[in-house]
Design a protein around this nucleic acid. Structure first.
Lengths: 228, 228
DNA sequence: CCAAAAGTGTTTTAGCTACACCCATGA
DNA sequence: TCATGGGTGTAGCTAAAACACTTTTGG
């Protein structure tokens, strides 16, 4: 019954990546079940909340310096479905003890993270058989309120598009203006005007232009850019 | 040791009011101590997080339909100072039991609220000897990280000034354009241009103009406005 | 009639948008 | 040389800002 973790407290992270013109989210699947969920975890007694999340993401992605932001804490009673945790534990031959802390009600602090898709090879964790990218428009059915958590994360991401250099965290070091625009479009879910977009980005003064790349396409080779 | 509340979980609320050209915050003082703190509380086992906060605010202010928004969850280890809770309990003759849940580490979900100053007569709660308004620039020394919580609340409030009808919740039903401008100025901490402000507000289309009031001043009597 | 504050018309500025033209490149 | 996509100049529109003039009121 005693554990090293704080009772009733969990975190969930919505990890966004961009690849192939699509916005992706990391989703894990519990072993021997059909339950899909956001990667998350618990907080140790002697550990900062934020540190716990960073540590958890490091385990899933191998990355250390991740752009990470807390956006909401979900505390509805509706989230409390002990039978789901029971299913997971049973499916993996783990004995249920009466009053096990994992069977209690949890409040979840939700974070979203932005990472460079191509730097990551996702690793499943304890009790999970996979940890994979899903197109944000083709998510599997998720357990509990995780779908709502993703929706709210996306909403927050959209609002911060104008305030923070979001592209910096989703794109590789060097990219074309078109890459950047595609990223914005897929986050906002709408097309933008090419000329306007370019001008706006350049006027923000956070992009550095480098020498041209060899595009391999039958057209003018675009500049490469990087942040700051 | 068993209690009706979720262990490790607390909430704190930053209640803003506007009066006399100043932005005010509700602060309570623990009985028989010199400890000042934000009004807060705990969450019952069978209670939604948001409902707990609404209930707590109702007790402090008597109001039911309060504009309320969650803005951050504070989970650093630095917040864990059991000696403070010990001081409070001892000062009021409450026996400490070993492993008392109130002596544990807490994570706090923070909310801010906007209310009409003149509709409220703040009431102290359990263990507190007062619950009073403080000018946001003349706060007493607050316990734990409550000062930081207020700072972050104000920052969030500033950002939402442009998005939400903040004045609606801080002002009485009828007010002059000048009242509204003063409110904005005190939140943002900067003067604004009179003509520009008036036009911007009217163009938002959320204000209704009523008949003039008798100002009592040696000048043109201003219109009264209300929201929606 | 004067001072003070409110309401409003006008001009200027800044930013965003759309269009269009030119350029570089590989096929 | 042609099709494709990239960079940029320009004109039009809109919103915000600054200024100043007029109006109303109590003293």
């Amino acid at each position: 019954m005693k554990s090293d973790f704080l009772k009733h407290i969990a975190y969930d992270s919505v990890v966004f990546g961009y690849s192939d013109g699509q916005l992706k989210v990391l989703i894990m699947k519990y072993m021997n079940t059909n339950l899909y969920a956001l990667p998350g975890g618990f907080v140790k007694m002697k550990e900062n909340l934020n540190d716990a999340v960073v540590k958890g993401l490091k385990e899933r992605t191998g990355l250390n310096n991740i752009f990470l932001e807390q956006f909401y804490t979900f505390g509805d009673l509706k989230r409390y479905k002990p039978e789901i945790m029971e299913t997971i534990l049973k499916a993996n031959g783990i004995k249920l003890r009466r009053n096990d802390w994992m069977m209690d009600r949890f409040i979840s602090i939700a974070y979203y993270a932005l990472i460079n898709f191509h730097e990551v090879d996702p690793k499943p964790g304890f009790l999970s058989e996979s940890c994979d990218w899903y197109d944000i428009n083709k998510l599997p059915k998720l357990m509990l309120d995780h779908k709502m958590i993703i929706t709210k994360a996306l909403q927050t991401l959209r609002e911060s598009l104008g305030k923070k250099p979001v592209g910096k965290n989703l794109l590789p070091k060097f990219f074309t203006m078109n890459d950047l625009q595609k990223t914005y479009e897929v986050i906002l879910g709408e097309k933008m005007h090419r000329g306007t977009f370019q001008r706006k980005m350049l006027n923000m003064g956070i992009l550095v232009r480098h020498e041209k790349k060899f595009s391999g396409g039958a057209h003018k080779a675009p500049y490469l850019y990087s942040f700051d």
